[in-house]
């Protein structure tokens, strides 16, 4: 390297501390006011017996102690984890498939637009819509099934199908959005690399495993980590379609938090449960980043 530019560059870097602060300032204000302060308040409230309407009284780690032995809490955690396993793998595979279709089968931007449409509906409307479509008595899907002479399928009202059905509803809403991000990642794969493999006689499967997947890894990591975080916080769909039932088949952690906080007035307890969820999410995300070597590149 030549000397003068480097020096000058360093000079410009020295000014960056102050400059960086200026650039960060607006977001820092928002971050402190609407994220950090409430989070700290949350930590404080999780150590109290706040009943939502009264004054919170400090109880130390009592809430956490109780949660550790609360069967309902761990059961709802288990249901949530099951839900994540129904939701994420299928959604990711579908999104990957759709992205490949967008890239290889039809480049039509109309197709890309259509795939995104479910995401334009609010959560609540999506949940109500599917509740309506899946109804065992008057839903169009079961009416059709019955007109073929079969028994109606109890999508949301049997303990086996309720959780996968809810996962299906959310996959329907999110797959286009997820596919689009994966599609964006596909655009970054240099054509020449794949061309070369093709000339070497690599099969489509080999090309997919050896070239496409490694190139997509950072994007997939982003998609999977953010969707897992969202998936753990499933609430609207459950609250509208099954309210946790049948029995406890769909009693997810957010429902536990909401019911304890707003219906049983155990806000301190509910906040402590949220904090444990937060810690679990941190752990899960950290693990995912490690496994997927999210911050490294293969090339």
């Amino acid at each position: 390297m030549r000397e003068t530019p480097n020096k000058r560059k360093r000079k410009s870097l020295d000014k960056q501390g102050a400059g960086a602060l200026l650039f960060l300032l607006p977001s820092l204000i928002g971050f402190a006011a609407f994220f950090i302060v409430p989070a700290l308040r949350g930590i404080f409230l999780s150590l109290t017996d706040w009943d939502l309407l009264g004054k919170p009284g400090f109880v130390g780690l009592e809430n956490y102690g109780k949660l550790l032995t609360d069967e309902e809490f761990w059961n709802s955690m288990l249901v949530t984890v099951k839900y994540v396993f129904w939701n994420i793998p299928l959604q990711t595979v579908l999104a990957l498939g759709i992205a490949l279709v967008m890239d290889r089968v039809t480049k039509s931007s109309v197709f890309r637009g259509i795939i995104l449409i479910p995401w334009l509906l609010p959560n609540v409307v999506v949940a109500l819509l599917w509740l309506w479509l899946l109804d065992p008595a008057v839903g169009v899907i079961n009416s059709t099934v019955q007109s073929w002479g079969m028994k109606p399928i109890n999508f949301l009202t049997s303990t086996e199908l309720a959780l996968p059905s809810i996962a299906g509803i959310n996959i329907w809403r999110h797959m286009g959005y997820t596919a689009l991000i994966v599609f964006a990642g596909l655009q970054g794969i240099p054509r020449e690399v794949e061309e070369a493999a093709l000339i070497d006689g690599a099969s489509p499967w080999t090309r997919f495993i050896r070239i496409i997947l490694p190139y997509l890894r950072p994007v997939l990591a982003f998609v999977i980590i953010t969707s897992v975080i969202g998936s753990f916080q499933i609430y609207d769909t459950v609250a509208i379609t099954t309210r946790g039932g049948p029995i406890t088949a769909t009693y997810v952690i957010y429902l536990f938090i909401f019911k304890n906080g707003f219906e049983s007035y155990l806000m301190g307890y509910a906040t402590a449960a949220s904090m444990i969820l937060f810690l679990i999410l941190m752990g899960v995300s950290f693990l995912q980043m490690r496994i997927m070597r999210a911050s490294e590149s293969d090339f």
């Binding site: 960060l24 971050f31 994220f35 409430p38 989070a39 953010t226 909401f258 949220s274």
Partner: peptide
């Protein structure tokens, strides 16, 4: 792009708030 002290820490803090259940934020906000 810019270099400043605590950059990585601050960024990690930003990202970690993604994982705070929104229900915790709602009432204080």
């Amino acid at each position: 792009r810019l270099k400043f002290r605590f950059r990585e820490m601050l960024f990690a803090l930003y990202v970690s708030t993604l994982m705070i259940p929104s229900i915790v934020m709602m009432l204080p906000n």
